[in-house]
Simulated assay, not measured.
Amino acid sequence: MAITAHEAALDHALGAAARGLAVIPLSRTKLPAVRSPHRTERRPASCRGECGQIGHGVHDASTDADAVRALFATAPWATGYGIACGRPPHFLIGVDLDVKNDGDGIQNLERLAIDHGFTIPLTVTVTTPSGGRHLWFFGPADTAIPNSASKIAPGIDIRGSGGYLVGPGSRTIAGEYVHAPGTHHRPIAETPAALLRLISPPPTPRLSPLSLPVSGQKAVALVSFVLESPSGQRNDRLYWAACRAHETDHGTELAQALVDAAVHIGLPEGEARATVASAAHRARRVAR
């Protein structure tokens, strides 16, 4: 009897999990297949699995075979799987080379290698339905590599901490993701040092009371709290810091500094401004 796309995806996902790669089931649209337990709530939840239920996207990813089977059993419509990046032991970095929408990522990576003096090593490579490629690299254990889209060059997206790659053997609306010939059993290569410098987050700036519009260590502590946010907690920590700033009557003066800090660590400026504005609205409501 022919194997179904769901069964094939589960089989491939279990194989990846056995290699130490944490996986989740994906739908044909490449999105996490397990539905959020918070989808009927009126206000979007910031929960990332703390509630003890599944349905939190990449935060559900596991290398445990029983857990993977349970995830797929919950989503029988899943026809693919995602591989979480930035997780130990591999701290996987995915270099997603697009050749369709935003420039030729394959050619642009070759130009970057020439310009910055590094060689693109042989590594696990997955071909996409559009003709693009996913290159897999070992990442550093001490640095969370941010996700980005065409930041280092057109057509080159980076999948880092909090992101995932569509795994080989997945079937999507666009087609199938498969290993490039000869790369299935190839070891994952280390990220070239020059490429790692291009995709690593900028160093956190040192703060002093003199660099802020409001004096005092409280202001420094609030901005530092945002700058030190781990991936997945940036928006929540920005909101908390903005609320505390209003409690000290300096919310308005510190607003721009908090937005700048959030943007520095990778939060989109529009989202950062909306979060700070939401904190200001809360402060006005509480003051009534």
Rank of each mutant, 00 (worst) to 15 (best):
T143K: 03
L212I: 07
V23T: 05
G86E: 12
L21M: 11
S62F: 04
P146D: 14
L92A: 11
V223D: 10
Q256G: 01
A61P: 11
A33W: 04
L14G: 04
D236H: 13
T125S: 15
P268N: 08
P205R: 06
I106C: 03
G266C: 02
F118D: 09
L109M: 13
I173E: 10
A272V: 06
L195F: 12
L207E: 13
S208C: 09
A2M: 13
H38P: 01
P187R: 14
R237Q: 11
A280C: 04
P181H: 12
P203K: 10
V166R: 05
D60G: 05
P203V: 09
S46W: 04
D142T: 13
S224D: 13
L109D: 07
G94R: 05
I158T: 12
D98G: 11
A61K: 09
R206L: 15
D142V: 02
P203H: 09
R159T: 07
V178M: 05
R197Y: 02
E247F: 01
D115E: 15
H59R: 12
N108L: 12
S36E: 03
P181M: 06
F118H: 06
A279W: 04
A149G: 03
N147P: 15
F72S: 07
T40S: 03
F91L: 00
A17W: 03
K218Y: 08
W240K: 08
S200T: 11
A84G: 03
L238C: 07
H12N: 08
L198F: 07
A8V: 02
A70S: 15
V124Y: 01
P25W: 02
R206Y: 06
T40G: 00
V124T: 13
V178T: 15
P146V: 14
T248S: 10
A33I: 01
P230N: 00
F137R: 09
G15W: 07
G266P: 09
H12G: 02
H90A: 11
I106E: 01
P213Y: 06
L112R: 07
Y177L: 13
T119G: 01
A274F: 00
A144S: 14
P192V: 07
C243V: 02
P202N: 08
P201N: 01
L222N: 03
G103T: 14
G103W: 07
G175M: 12
G169M: 11
I93Y: 11
L10R: 08
I106K: 11
D11P: 01
G232I: 11
H281Y: 10
L258M: 10
L267K: 01
T40K: 08
L210G: 00
E190Q: 14
G117R: 07
T143H: 01
L195V: 00
I120C: 09
R48A: 11
A153Y: 05
H90G: 00
A2R: 10
G105P: 10
H116R: 15
T172W: 08
D260G: 00
V214I: 13
H179C: 08
G160N: 05
A45Q: 07
W136P: 01
F72H: 04
A194E: 15
L227K: 04
S278W: 05
R35N: 01
I145G: 04
G155A: 11
P89V: 12
H6K: 09
G49I: 02
D249Q: 11
V214W: 10
V214C: 10
L267N: 03
F138R: 08
F138M: 12
P187I: 00
K151R: 15
T127Y: 00
A141G: 12
V276M: 10
